[in-house]
Design a protein around this nucleic acid. Structure first.
Length: 104
DNA sequence: TAGATGACTCACA
DNA sequence: ATGTGAGCCATCT
């Protein structure tokens, strides 16, 4: 669960898709490390290299309060990927790499 | 080294 | 539905 691992994971995210903190954490091996993932992204300033904007919370919203460039920039970036953004939120059911469908 | 904080998430009232 | 409490991990002081 290194910062690098998370960054690498971000790069592995397919274009036009988004992932949640918990999902990233789980894929990395620590499903409870959602918080750590967020922290790592926060520390990461290579947003241009690592699409942290593709990472959203369990609700499908991005951390607009602390985002790299604000909800506007994030929204534009997501839209550039072909992701439909609703009020700073995305439809995990459509763009979520896996969303919470696993819960079903 | 130990303590505190945070881009999170879940459960309960 | 909203608000509060607890748990986890990495970084910072």
């Amino acid at each position: 669960m290194d910062k690098k691992s998370v960054l690498e994971y971000l790069r592995s995210i397919p274009c036009g898709k988004v992932v949640t903190y918990s999902q990233v954490a789980e894929d990395l091996g620590n499903k409870n490390a959602a918080r750590a993932v967020g922290n790592i992204l926060h520390t990461n300033k290579d947003a241009v290299k690592y699409p942290c904007y593709r990472v959203v919370n369990a609700k499908g919203e991005l951390a607009k309060n602390y985002a790299f460039g604000g909800a506007e920039g994030q929204k534009k970036l997501l839209e550039s990927e072909g992701i439909e953004v609703k009020n700073g939120k995305v439809d995990l059911s459509k763009y979520g790499l896996r969303a919470k469908e696993k819960r079903v």
